[in-house]
């Protein structure tokens, strides 16, 4: 019934069950349950705490970078050079190890190289105003190319024990938690809080939804984007430190193709490639889904490249599915 007198405007819409059910994160939780159930059914080795702990190795480093990538994509930018940054940072760590640098230097040099690479990307995108996709395709070649120039077809293997221990032992012994996984979890909480609870996070969404209006609202759009490129570089450098410690060697093709896997994590996590939407819990769920599918399939000896077919299909179906469903609902 229409009431001519205006009512006070509610603070928020009444919560509806259907809204909650249709949330992307809810769908991801469902998917994660299916994956876990499926893996349990497929292999008796899946639900073993040590196996699960080892499984985290194959995604934690990528997942760390995915957190920063999510923020970057939310602000309508992208960084395709992350895997190349990992290669360059790993190389720097290797060179430091060869010259006999102490542990602390080995831990810091990767992130430092990452910061420099990220700052260069950020400068080209925000300082000169170039599209980030082209810039980072260029720096992707440049960074990995530089690693290749220095390394040629050599491999660096002389890493001290105290360094590789970080990649190959647990930070906490029970439950068995590797360094990289703990670092990812801590960073995920920090990122979630920053993105969803602080003024900085609010600004990121404003930039992603309308950069012009954000700029008119006094938000330093370019400076924030620059910071995010540096942050992405930093985390790629950190991932390089962890990855190098884990595998104990540096080759020019280290982390090859990771940029696509990282971006897949972010997009499957519900971050719109057009910017402006997405959540950290979504990305974390997507990380687990992708990581556990990979782990489950490798338990039954599916080759890696076939796993990538399945993950590629999952990416497309997960984006296309909701569009089709919405169309069918509207068409009715």
């Amino acid at each position: 019934m229409n009431v001519p007198v205006r009512q006070a405007i509610a603070d928020a819409a009444p919560r509806k069950m259907s809204d909650w059910l249709l949330r992307w994160e809810t769908i991801l939780v469902g998917l994660l349950i299916v994956v876990i159930a499926g893996n349990t059914a497929i292999s008796p080795y899946f639900l073993d705490i040590y196996n699960l702990s080892d499984a985290t190795y194959n995604f934690s480093e990528k997942a760390i970078v995915a957190l920063a990538m999510a923020l970057l994509i939310i602000t309508r930018e992208i960084d395709l050079s992350v895997a190349a940054v990992i290669a360059l940072a790993s190389l720097a760590t290797g060179l430091a190890a060869e010259s006999g640098a102490p542990l602390i230097v080995l831990l810091v040099v990767g992130p430092a190289v990452g910061i420099v690479c990220g700052a260069f990307n950020g400068f080209l995108v925000t300082g000169i105003g170039l599209p980030s996709i082209v810039v980072t395709i260029g720096t992707m070649s440049l960074y990995r190319g530089l690693a290749q120039v220095v390394l040629g077809d050599q491999v660096i293997k002389q890493y001290p024990k105290d360094y590789t221990a970080i990649g190959q032992s647990y930070l906490i012994n029970w439950p068995p938690l590797p360094y990289s996984f703990v670092i990812f979890l801590v960073l995920a909480v920090v990122f979630a809080v920053v993105l969803h609870k602080t003024a900085f996070g609010r600004k990121l969404y404003a930039i992603g939804n309308n950069p012009v209006a954000a700029k008119f609202s006094g938000i330093p759009v370019e400076r924030i984007r620059f910071l995010l490129f540096v942050l992405t570089g930093l985390l790629a450098g950190l991932a390089a430190t962890l990855l190098t410690a884990r595998i104990g060697s540096t080759r020019p093709n280290i982390a090859l193709g990771w940029e696509l896997e990282i971006i897949t994590m972010v997009i499957l996590g519900g971050v719109s490639i057009a910017g402006g939407s997405g959540t950290i819990p979504g990305v974390v769920l997507a990380v687990f889904i992708l990581g556990l599918i990979t782990f489950g399939l490798s338990l039954i000896n599916v080759p890696g490249i076939v796993i990538s077919v399945i993950l590629g299909c999952l990416l497309i179906v997960s984006i296309a599915g909701p569009i089709l469903v919405r169309r069918l609902l509207r068409g009715r």
């Binding site: 696509l260 897949t264 997009i267 080759p303 490249i305 590629g312 990416l315 497309i316």
Partner: peptide, 19 residues
């Protein structure tokens, strides 16, 4: 669907299909 998303996915799928 944005072209970069689609072709990122098919990049992996098509190559994997070779195997």
């Amino acid at each position: 669907i944005p072209p970069i998303v689609v072709t990122l996915g098919t990049l992996a799928v098509y190559r994997g299909m070779i195997v």
